[in-house]
Design a binder for these strands. Structure first.
Lengths: 139, 139
DNA sequence: CGGCATCCTCGAGGATACTG
DNA sequence: CAGTATCCTCGAGGATGCCG
């Protein structure tokens, strides 16, 4: 047993691909990061309309859908004040806040290297449009 | 100027939403993380077929497409050995490796809290199937 | 104010088959 | 061996309109 390969580190991905996939799907959803940072920078509950205002062009449907998902996932707490007009506030839970450092780490990479990646794409993608023509026409 | 708000930290997302979005799209693509870890755990160039074998059920099309994207982005280096049969090897560049710690940070969160999130969804989602019926039938 | 219900588009990604 | 070429599905997410 434990014959040849020491298996020195065995990346986490091998251990629980499903959890990682679901986490990636969570944070990669179009509005997840904007919403999280909007709730963070508020440091305090934020009303639905205020959230919508900060996020610019998000539709009510998308905002509501995401907030519901976050709520059932335990990442966001929803508080309804039974007043007229209705007042609904949202805030990150501890669990939700625990995700922020990871998001920040990723954002740091994006800021440091994202531009380089973009430049690479630009300079590699372009040129060689010739290949679109090939031995055009003849077959 | 700098009148009222100190703007203490201004989350990175506000500074460069585009770079962050592109980075999220990059790492959230279905096969990005598997491919990166497959190339890392190899510590050395990996042949196309070997990569496909490690990734299990990825199709040739998807594997090739991702590898091309990574190559043009400067994240992966592709080396062709002009032998028969052909031999093509892939390896992470320094830029590609620089992304690994961020991925690991995210994976750590997934392993620590992913299960909790999944449980929350389970227990919150379920129950109240009654609402599917409403005042069923009557208008 | 704080949503929900519909319709629709668009592209990621799978299945399958073929090639230099 | 290392891909390319086609076709097709499926769901995220936008647009629009209505409601308690």
């Amino acid at each position: 047993m434990h014959s040849h390969a020491p298996r020195e580190k065995e990346p986490c991905f091998e251990q629980c691909p499903v959890l990682i996939r679901e986490t990636l799907d969570l944070i990669a959803a179009k509005w997840t990061v904007p919403i999280f940072f909007a709730l963070q920078s508020a440091s305090g509950p934020v009303r639905y309309a205020e959230l919508q205002r900060r996020l610019g062009d998000i539709t009510p449907k998308e905002l509501a859908k995401h907030l519901r998902n976050f709520e059932t996932a335990g990442l966001v707490e929803r508080t309804v004040h039974p007043t007229v007009p209705p007042r609904v506030e949202y805030a990150l839970t501890e669990l939700g806040e625990s995700l922020l450092p990871s998001l920040q780490t990723l954002a740091d990479w994006a800021i440091r290297f994202g531009a380089v990646v973009a430049e690479n794409k630009m300079s590699n993608e372009r040129s060689a449009p010739v290949r679109l023509i090939k031995a055009a026409g003849i077959k």
